[in-house]
Design a protein around this nucleic acid. Structure first.
Lengths: 130, 130
DNA sequence: CGGCATCCGTACGGATACTG
DNA sequence: CAGTATCCGTACGGATGCCG
């Protein structure tokens, strides 16, 4: 992609409220629990090996983990480094772009943990009313 | 729920990295494009009627809209007010709890719109490499 | 160790029709 | 207007097995 092509794209105003807009699709991929957990883990712990991510995020199948990491790598949010040891060692790290997003999703994760009680109370009241 | 029961819950440390933790489940529901778009719309535009939300979020089926709004209402993030006119008019508004979250998800939506070009460039490069 | 390929059930979500 | 109910296809994601 040339700089001229990029400047053309910069002119576009993206709006996730529009169904056909590419930013809607991007928001969609970012709105995944696995994305949120992976970005949070990499932000909180720095560079991590594949197995360390798997251990951090309990219950994530390696299919979802790999799929999520590939998508994040493709979108330029995470870098993947392979060290040709035996057996091979793979390390993932946030890119500057990914770093600028990870703070936001980490705050959402932190909100969920901090306000869990309020939500549980609200649910109990709602279920009582109905 | 009594105040004593609530105090018991307050003691719990929630951790979304744990598969069985309720906060993981909450993060999961928050990690939905529809939740992000609805909370963003209500934050940006204030109280909205059902049809206004539907118009704002293009391409959202009324099934998903209703389902999302019910879930948000149950979790205490959104309040629902029915005015008994003919035909009936229903208004949705962020609760203080919902307001405290909506800023975070709106920032994620804004990030997606602002960094769409960077992501598209990264994707093009990735697809070239592979 | 860090994957990829395949199979397969379920549940997410769209389309349609009907109601207070 | 603001829903509810039902049907139904698809695609998300888990389980398993194999590989460099």
């Amino acid at each position: 992609m040339t700089a001229a092509q990029r400047r053309e794209l910069e002119k576009i105003q993206f709006d996730a409220y529009l169904a056909e807009c590419k930013s809607r699709e991007l928001l969609e991929t970012l709105s995944s629990k696995w994305v949120a957990l992976v970005l949070s883990a990499l932000r909180e712990k720095g560079a991590l090996r594949y197995s360390e991510i798997a251990r951090t995020i309990a219950g994530a199948s390696q299919k979802m983990l790999t799929q999520t990491l590939r998508a994040l790598e493709r979108d330029g949010l995470v870098s993947r480094e392979v060290e040709p040891t035996v057996p091979v060692s793979v390390t993932y790290e946030l890119t500057p772009l990914g770093d600028s997003l990870s703070g936001l999703v980490l705050s959402v994760k932190a909100w969920a943990e901090a306000n869990m009680v309020d939500v549980m109370v609200a649910r109990a009241e709602y279920d009582d009313r109905t």
